[in-house]
Amino acid sequence: MPRLLRSLWLTLILALLYMPILSVVLASLANTRYMRFPHRTWSVGAYTDTFSQQETLTLHLVSLKVALCVTLFSVILGALGAMAFARYDWRGRSIYQKAVVLPIFFPQPVLGLALLMFYSALGIPPSWKTAIFAHMVWILPIVTLVISIRLFGYDPAQEDAARDLGASRWQVLREVTLPHLAPGLISGGLFAFLLSWSNLPLSIFTTGADTTLPEWLFSRVATNYAPVVSAIAVIGTFASVILGVLVLLGLRLSRARAG
């Protein structure tokens, strides 16, 4: 009996988690301008529209550009920052460790507005490039934390040992430091990409004339809804799932080859 209860409980939780996604899928299959159920007529028109519009491509490209740059810069800076406080003991280390995560607690819309004022004070016109910086203010601390978790169990003497055994500095990086950091870099990178890809409050203030996908979705949901909005959300979700599965498979394959 407890077994039956447990599986019921699990089913309930999964249903609650996936219900909203399912409802978006259903909404995308309508041809009405309002979200309502049940549909009078079912249609895949929203999907064909999505793929035929130039606008949706541009939206995705802007979001992708921002997210990829944020990922790249955050992982590099995050790795360096994490090494600085996980490997070396220096004055102000513990203050740095706390200061670096503070921006996470700052409300994003306020941060976005503050950054916009900062840009205009400096005379920088906001665009997708300024959005990269804005996203990083919030995302870099998280990436640094994720990577530093990997570094805390790390014995830096391993690098000395590798040097001592004949490795050049470059070989030490390739053979010891990077393999050890790799899981942290990958999870940090995934975090950075997803947080940037789905960010709305910072993008609203800092992208200027460019529009990211979440911004567009938000404005269309608020004022000018069409099933295209749901269709894009569904496509995005499935694309992410497929990407995630591919990354996992790739990791498993490369590990199998290494081992």
């Binding site: 014995d155 003497a157 391993q158 000395d160 040992a161 001592d164 055994l165 010891v176 050890h180």
Partner: peptide, 11 residues
């Protein structure tokens, strides 16, 4: 070559 106190094996 050196044997380190922590051994510093590549874990």
């Amino acid at each position: 070559a050196m044997v380190f106190q922590s051994l510093a094996l590549f874990d």
